[in-house]
Amino acid sequence: MNDVNRRVLPGFRLSLGYTLAYLGVLVLVPLAACFSKAATLPFDRFWAAVSTERAIAAYELTVGASLVSAAINVVLGVLVAWVLVRYEFPLKRLVDSLVDLPFALPTAVAGLVYSSLYVESGWLGRFLVPLGIQAAYSRLAIVLVLVFVGFPFVVRTLEPVLERIDADIEEAAACLGATRLQTVTRVIFPSLYPALVTGFALSFARALGEYGSVVFVSGNMPFKTEIAPVLIVARLEEFAYAEATAIAVVLLVISFSVLVVVNLLERWSKRVYA
């Protein structure tokens, strides 16, 4: 079809040329500038910038909070996707569209409202704070808001997979004497694994770079509740551009590694589960 299209349809060179130029100018060149700026640092200064105790604490918190929030999202996502696909209940369509709110709500609004809900005088904080649960200005607050931000990913990757599961397979399992619990855990769940991995990774990747919501709720205390993007901004505000860039490169390398791993996992799972 390619030869026919290129002979018949107009605009191949124009559209591809424009696409490449725009991608290059807006995305590739600026990203390359970031790496080249970091490369101008002598290696020992680069290493000193990225390996301060404060920076390492920030990476650990960023990666740790992102992992925990993505894991929570897998559990919540399975529950919500299952209920939305399998059961009927009033206002189901409304609930279904509300799942996407974290995609549409600006992160600053999410951060603002989460910080006000979980302080002692807030709607939820007044029940939690007396129990000793500090869900504002703490690491828990970071995890909570990251759960919010990444929530739709797992639900939306699972739903189509759940819809496609053949009724025959479940009926066969039941006919062969499996209990309902066995059918769910041994027949249905295994076919969800690829989608779960993808949803987990998407949610994790989103959480790694998140800034707007976290900056409101975390309190941003170095060594305690400072995530890597907040540290980059702190360095920038001290006009320490080289140090900020070095930490940004570490964050970029982590994000791009996640991206590569996701692609490899998807290819692998397509081969295994196809």
């Binding site: 696409t19 490449l20 991608l23 995305v27 590739l28 060149v29 600026p30 990203l31 500038a33 970031c34 700026k37 990747a205 790694l208 770079g209 998140e210 800034y211 707007g212 890597a228 993007p229 980059i232 901004v233 920038l236 551009y241 900020a244 860039t245 940004a248 964050l251 970029l252 994000s255 791009f256 996640v258 991206l259 692609n263």
Partner: peptide, 25 residues
């Protein structure tokens, strides 16, 4: 090319701002 188009989604917004400061700041 299709994969590269998605690249900005995996860049932290803070880093996205920073790269323009590094060029135009």
């Amino acid at each position: 090319l299709t994969a590269l188009i998605d690249l900005p989604f995996s860049v932290s917004p803070v880093v996205a701002g920073l790269i323009f400061v590094l060029i135009f700041g």
